[in-house]
C-alpha cells in the first residue's frame, strides 16, 4: 500500500521528466527542484494561508507550471537547436540556483508540513493506511489520469504527440513548436511540483529534498524508456513497490538502494527500458 503511495508520486515525477526529454530533448536536471518548490508551495498554502490539501496541491501545480514555463521561455527557447550538452549545463545551473534560492527563502531546517487529516490509520480488512496516504494515492492517480486525458484526448495533446513524432511536419500543420515546448515544460514542472506537494506532508520539506526525487525521476524514466508515458507510469509504480518491499524485507536503510539495483539490472538486460515499444509520448 505504501508502495503505491510512493509509486504514484514517482510516476508523476517520471511522466513530467520523460515528456520534457521526449519532446524537447532536454535533460532536465532541475526537475527535482520543481518537486521541492511544490513541497514549499504546499507548506505555504497549508501553514501560511490555512488552505486545504487539494488547494495546496493545485497551488503547487500552478507555481511549478508558471516557473517551469518561465524557465523554458527565458532560458531554453533561445537555445533551441543547440546541442543536448548545452541545455543540460543550463539546467544544472538552474538546479543549483533554485536550490540556493530555496535555502535562502526557507532556511536549511527541515519543515514538517501540517495537513488536515487524522493520524489514526484506517483499517480496511488486512491493510491499515493513514488517511493522508490514501488521499495522496487518490490524488496522484487522478493527476496521472488527467495527464493521459490531456495527452490523448485534447487538441493540445495531439499537437504535442505530433510534434514529438515529427516536429517539422507538425510545424507544416500550423503547430507553433516553440509554444508546444513552453507548454510541455510547464506541464512537466507542474507534475513534479504536484509530486512534491503530495509527498511533502508525508515526509518533510527541506531545500535538498529534490535531489533524491530527481534521482528517482531519472530512474523511472530509464525503467520506462525515454519519452514513454505508460512506461513512466508503470516504472514509477514498480519503483515505489520495489522500494517498499526492499525496505520491508531487507532493511529500511536500503530503501533507496533497491531502486538503483533495479535500474542497473534493467540497463544491463533491457537498455531501452522495461516497456520499450515503437511508440513514445502516448
Amino acid at each position: 500500500m505504501n508502495g503505491l503511495v510512493l509509486g504514484g508520486t514517482y510516476a508523476l515525477l517520471g511522466i513530467g521528466l520523460t515528456l520534457i526529454f521526449g519532446l524537447m530533448n532536454v535533460v532536465n536536471f532541475a526537475h527535482g527542484e520543481f518537486y521541492t518548490l511544490g513541497a514549499y508551495a504546499a507548506f505555504a498554502t497549508l501553514a501560511g494561508l490555512g488552505g486545504g490539501f487539494v488547494a495546496a496541491v493545485l497551488g503547487a501545480i500552478v507555481c511549478g507550471a508558471l516557473l517551469g514555463g518561465l524557465t523554458e521561455r527565458v532560458l531554453l527557447r533561445p537555445l533551441r537547436g543547440e546541442s543536448i550538452d548545452t541545455t543540460m549545463l543550463v539546467m544544472i545551473g538552474v538546479w543549483i540556483a533554485m536550490q540556493n534560492a530555496e535555502l535562502l527563502v526557507w532556511g536549511g531546517v527541515a519543515k514538517s508540513i501540517p495537513h488536515p487529516f487524522p493520524t489514526e490509520p484506517l483499517v480496511l480488512g488486512p491493510v491499515a493506511i493513514a488517511p493522508l496516504r490514501l488521499f495522496v494515492m487518490a490524488l496522484a492517480a487522478g493527476l496521472i489520469a488527467a495527464s493521459y486525458l490531456l495527452i490523448h484526448r485534447t487538441k493540445l495533446g495531439r499537437a504535442m504527440r505530433a510534434t514529438f513524432q515529427d516536429a517539422e511536419t507538425a510545424a507544416l500543420m500550423g503547430v507553433k513548436i516553440a509554444r508546444i515546448h513552453t507548454v510541455t515544460f510547464a506541464f512537466g514542472s507542474g507534475l513534479a511540483a504536484a509530486a512534491g506537494a503530495l509527498l511533502g506532508p508525508v515526509f518533510l520539506a527541506y531545500p535538498s529534498m529534490g535531489d533524491l526525487a530527481a534521482l528517482k525521476a531519472f530512474s523511472v524514466v530509464i525503467l520506462g524508456g525515454l519519452g514513454n508515458l505508460p512506461g513512466a507510469t508503470l516504472g514509477g509504480l514498480l519503483l515505489g513497490i520495489a522500494e517498499e518491499l526492499g525496505a520491508g524485507y531487507v532493511s529500511s536503510g536500503y530503501r533507496d538502494a533497491v531502486g538503483f539495483v533495479i535500474i542497473i539490472v534493467v540497463l544491463l538486460f533491457r537498455p531501452s527500458g522495461l516497456f520499450a515499444r515503437q511508440e513514445r509520448i502516448g
Partner: peptide, 25 residues
C-alpha cells in the same frame, strides 16, 4: 497547404488524428 516529400504522416497518430492535424489552424 504543403504535402511534403516522403508523405510524413504521423506514424503513431490514428488516421483520424492525422486528418485532424491537417485542420489544426
Amino acid at each position: 497547404a504543403h504535402c511534403p516529400e516522403g508523405r510524413r504522416v504521423f506514424p503513431h497518430l490514428t488516421v483520424d488524428e492525422n486528418l485532424a492535424m491537417g485542420a489544426y489552424v
